[in-house]
Design a protein around this nucleic acid. Structure first.
Length: 700
DNA sequence: CGTCCTCGAGTTCC
DNA sequence: CTCGAGGACG
């Protein structure tokens, strides 16, 4: 084989060029238009063919070849790059009033400049505000030459070789591109890709990322572009810095002369379309709107569809559409006057972890609780967050003094997501589980195979005594209204109340003597106690707080045994007959009633006039739900969850908390959550309140 | 013995 | 709501 095969070489060159253009087109279709026309396998085949040709003819390799995305060697450090046009930040708005004020300011200024007819409405482009990293890409003669992070707005880090690995970023523009184009946009990661990346990181024992934003930032700040190449990063263009247009090859024009006939467009919306025609990815979630109402409408629509987006956003952005109008409005300090960011209430914030205290639960469970520097997140101020247990703290690697990310996800309960390691002070302290209960001084033990540490003090521990009283007074137990935490504290500390039974000997006079208790509330409490003297047996059993006996098991025990004496007399074999009672639960019940002080409480309750009502045998008429399990989710228009539960139980059905194949129906109300999705996934029939009533033959 | 289902327990803020 | 773990079932 000789090398002098000119026709061969030319054929290879043509083929290589054709392949590059085809691969670039597929990239464009896949990453920009989101409409691929070839399979991954076919794409790989094209790529492999190109690699083959380039290996045979190294002269044919060009910097824009898709094989060269990961060409550069690892860097020792990032260089810095100065932005020719600064990357500015935007003013922030949080309320509708802020937006109305913004619209008024813009309208007044434009009307003053004669650019808006009296009473006319300003046109804006509304876009998403991505929760990623702002970057600037510089194209010269259509070729990607430089890429930089935002940095301080004047100077950023040179991340050119990392940006080149993003397949959604074209290495070469298509169509009628200008001499120089600086594109501003955002690099981000889809939530699903972020989850997958973290799983892989964990499996390899490498550090996991706190959120998609941090993952994107970490990926972009890799000194080795080969690592960046493996990370699923996306890019969206939304603005520009320097633009140099060539007018018949001679005259240089800058954006500051927008409105000039040689600009390819005279609106922001037109500019975004132009970007698309150059092969740059632009988010389709954008809209031209008019006035404050138009902006707020977009905000509401995006807010409603937010969970359905594949990536995180922290709000929306409005920009005056006319470029000439933007120019008139100009800048104030560092932010443009023609644009504003309308932020969603943050769902994640960072704050300082001041300390970790422990709480003692009803069963003695010791729960570490994070004390946080108060932080406003998702509409409320958060100061505490549970850390669950030792393992959890170690898994998340949070230390006292850390700056931590706090989240209030879909639900209400705040959660510590993880520490921001870059901000960890050198003296950050590890949490140490105390060896003795902070309340009663008893030893804290953690069984070999369990995650929870427990105070061994039992009811000797004031904390456990208080918690068990609160539990017994709860809505699902004896339902004693007016017995709040403050009063329980006082009753226990004064020694007046040692067990549930003592509650029923309280008089209004006595209660009124305690702090913050008026005559009236004391009487209300005594009345509530009176009403609680005839609880259904299941509720009384639940109120006792036997380990592993919850609401549902207590009800099953009541159904089988009919009286508390019968439960106390039952042996293991008898207990095992009950639904959901196995050796562990049976052992727990036997041990509970073997304790003399627990038998004493039952006895004292009876003397205080508390007599449980045996459960009615299921009434024969209307047992249409017998043996069926239903799951409730969301808020129903008329019934509360408890009411619906009662009706279902009365019809012989069961209510469970989780959806599975065995679930007969899911009853979904307003704001139904993940359970509805699960039901649809498993093909479980879904009812609304009307449907449930029809099922119960109670339709109104 | 393994897998799936369900129950229990703990939790924040207003 | 979510996690962990006990129980039921194949």
């Amino acid at each position: 084989m000789t090398q002098k095969k000119t026709p061969d070489f030319e054929q290879a060159a043509r083929r290589a060029e054709a392949l590059r253009s085809e691969i670039a087109q597929h990239n464009h279709r896949y990453y920009v238009l989101d409409a691929p026309v070839v399979s991954d396998a076919e794409y790989d085949r094209l790529m492999n063919e190109l690699i083959g040709i380039e290996q045979a003819h190294p002269d044919l390799v060009t910097p824009e070849s898709p094989t060269q995305r990961v060409g550069a060697q690892p860097l020792a450090a990032f260089g810095s790059l100065r932005h020719t046009v600064p990357m500015r930040s935007l003013g922030n708005a949080f309320d509708p009033e802020d937006i109305q004020a913004f619209d008024k300011r813009v309208s007044d200024l434009l009307a003053g400049a004669g650019m808006l007819a009296p009473g006319g409405q300003v046109e804006y482009v509304a876009e998403l505000k991505f929760d990623g990293l702002a970057v600037s890409l510089r194209y010269e003669q259509g070729r990607l030459t430089r890429a930089a992070t935002r940095g301080d707005g004047q100077t950023g880090e040179d991340i050119t070789s990392n940006i080149r690995t993003l397949r959604s970023v074209p290495l070469k523009l298509i169509g009628r591109y200008p001499d120089v184009l600086e594109v501003r946009g955002e690099v981000l990661m889809n939530r699903a890709d972020f989850e997958r990346l973290n799983q892989a990181q964990q499996a390899r024992g490498e550090k996991v990322f706190v959120n998609p934003r941090n993952a994107a930032a970490g990926s972009l700040r890799q000194l080795d572009p080969r690592i960046t190449a493996t990370r699923p990063l996306r890019f969206f263009a939304y603005g520009w810095g320097e633009i140099r247009l060539v007018n018949r090859g001679q005259v240089e024009l800058f954006l500051q002369e927008a409105g000039d006939a040689d600009m390819p467009c005279d609106t922001h919306a037109g500019m975004l379309e132009w970007f698309e025609s150059l092969g740059l990815p632009v988010s389709a979630e954008r809209k031209v709107v008019r006035g404050a109402d138009g902006m707020l409408g977009f905000y509401a629509a995006v807010g409603a569809g937010r969970a359905g987006l594949p990536f995180d956003i922290d709000g929306v952005v409005y920009k005056v559409n006319e470029l000439a109008a933007q120019e008139v409005l100009g800048y104030v300090a560092r932010a443009p006057r023609y644009a504003i960011a309308h932020k969603f209430p943050a769902q994640e914030e960072t704050t300082l972890l001041l300390g970790i205290d422990v709480q003692v639960g009803r069963t003695g469970a010791i729960t570490p609780v994070a004390r946080l520097k108060p932080v406003f997140v998702g509409g409320v101020t958060v100061t505490n967050a549970t850390l669950h247990n030792d393992d959890e703290i170690r898994r998340k690697d949070v230390r006292i003094g850390d700056t931590v990310v706090v989240r209030r996800a879909g639900d209400v309960i705040p959660e510590i997501v993880g520490p921001v390691l870059e901000l960890r002070p050198p003296d950050a302290a590890l949490f140490v589980m105390p060896s003795h209960c902070p309340v009663c001084g008893s030893a804290i033990e953690r069984p070999e195979d369990e995650a929870i540490s427990r105070c061994t003090g039992g009811l000797f521990c004031a904390a456990q005594r208080k918690q068990s009283l609160t539990h017994a007074a709860g809505r699902k137990a004896l339902d004693i209204e007016g017995l709040g935490e403050k009063l329980v504290d006082q009753l226990v500390e004064s020694g007046r109340v040692k067990s549930i039974a003592d509650l029923f000997t309280l008089t209004a006079e006595e209660v009124a003597a305690y702090d913050r208790m008026g005559r009236k509330s004391a009487e209300n409490l005594v009345a509530a106690l009176e009403a609680a003297r005839k609880p259904p047996l299941g509720r009384l059993l639940y109120a006792l707080g036997i380990r592993h006996v919850g609401e549902s098991t207590a009800r099953d025990l009541a159904l089988r045994f009919g009286s508390i004496e019968a439960v106390m007399a039952a042996d293991e074999a008898a207990l095992l007959q009950v639904n959901d009672v196995g050796p562990v639960v049976a052992g727990s019940i036997l041990r509970f009633f073997a304790e003399q002080h627990n038998r004493d409480v039952v006895e004292a309750l009876s003397r205080a006039g508390v007599h449980a009502v045996p459960p009615e045998a299921p009434s024969g008429n209307n047992q249409r739900l017998a043996g069926r399990t239903l799951v409730l989710t969301g808020t129903m228009p008329n019934w509360t969850r408890d009411e619906a539960t009662r009706h279902i139980l009365a019809a012989g059905g069961k209510v469970s908390g989780s959806v599975s194949k065995k679930t007969a129906y899911v009853v979904a109300g307003e704001d139904a959550g993940s359970k509805l999705a699960k039901a649809q996934e498993l093909g479980v029939p879904v009812l609304d309140e009307q449907g449930l009533k029809a099922l119960l033959d109670m339709a109104d």
